[in-house]
């Protein structure tokens, strides 16, 4: 097993998200190849690597989009192989998408309120007969959604179409939407892509802020080194689906293997 697991293997339950030799094979290609991850409660963990290294595929097997062809995945020691994405979402794992996947016809606010589904307290009959429970629930979701939008500076766009926002703001909206499911573990896939430097800086602060405010564990995939080095506490580097390095930002920056992977081919 890899170094981050060995360190505290006896402290069971400390890892909120763990993979054990996770492998994802597409035909002849192993997009993820025997990857061990062990992410601790409350940390901001970076997953980096060159294009096509398999980072998004890791997200996809962690969230049930694909079932790993080999190896196991645990959320809080619960084996989640083969669970559907919505089931994993209900375990408190939420994500954003590298290729933004907002709900196109919905406003910014509706995008977020839709994600409140997981903790909705109304059923079909409350809705059909417009019972008090329905109104209370709707009001609660709306308030919560606006609160989240406020944090990300999107409240003033609440009624705007989600996909008509500029890219940087769409990415932030994706994070807000993911937060609306009230996750414990948040997976961010290149949240800084398409952002300008000042937005990237804001994002770095925001990631830390939401981690503290909502007691989150965050797994971050990001190409922008300023963001990665600025916010991550530990980083794992993958290349061709395999782990090639692991450590603190300073260790990673100076690791010859990492430099080679990035500058090599």
């Amino acid at each position: 097993m890899s170094e981050d697991v060995q360190k505290t293997d006896n402290a069971k339950g400390k890892y909120v998200l763990k993979t054990d030799r996770a492998t994802m094979q597409f035909g002849g290609l192993k997009a993820v190849d025997g990857l061990d991850l062990a992410i601790e409660q409350g940390e901001i963990f970076g997953l980096i690597g060159p294009n096509g290294a398999g980072k998004t595929t890791v997200f996809n097997i962690l969230t049930g989009v694909y079932e790993p062809t080999e190896g196991d995945i645990f959320v809080d020691d619960k084996l989640i192989n083969g669970l559907k994405p919505y089931q994993i979402s209900r375990l408190g794992v939420s994500r954003t998408f590298q290729n933004i996947r907002l709900f196109p016809s919905m406003s910014v606010l509706e995008n977020v309120v839709t994600a409140c589904h997981r903790h909705a307290n109304q059923n079909m009959f409350d809705a059909i007969f417009r019972l008090p429970k329905y109104f209370r629930d709707e009001e609660e979701h709306k308030e919560f959604a606006l609160e989240l939008l406020e944090i990300f500076g999107l409240k003033k766009y609440a009624e705007t179409g989600g996909t008509s926002l500029p890219y940087g703001k769409q990415r932030r909206l994706e994070i807000v939407r993911a937060l609306a499911t009230k996750p414990r573990i948040l997976l961010l896939d290149e949240p800084a892509a398409g952002m300008n430097p000042s937005e990237q800086e804001d994002l770095t602060d925001l990631i830390r802020e939401i981690r503290d405010k909502f007691d989150l564990t965050i797994l971050l995939v990001e190409h922008n080194m300023r963001v990665v080095m600025g916010v991550c506490e530990r980083i794992r580097v993958v290349d061709y689906g395999k782990s090639i390095a692991m450590g603190t930002p300073d260790q990673i920056k100076n690791d010859p293997k990492v430099i080679e992977a990035y500058l090599g081919d």
């Binding site: 939420s94 709900f103 016809s105 589904h117 809705a127």
Partner: peptide, 20 residues
């Protein structure tokens, strides 16, 4: 309602709907 939004989210993006 919550259910309606769930239905519309399926129309809009099934994968994102599941993830939410």
């Amino acid at each position: 309602s919550d259910m309606g939004r769930a239905l519309i989210s399926i129309r809009e993006d099934e994968l994102a709907a599941e993830a939410m």
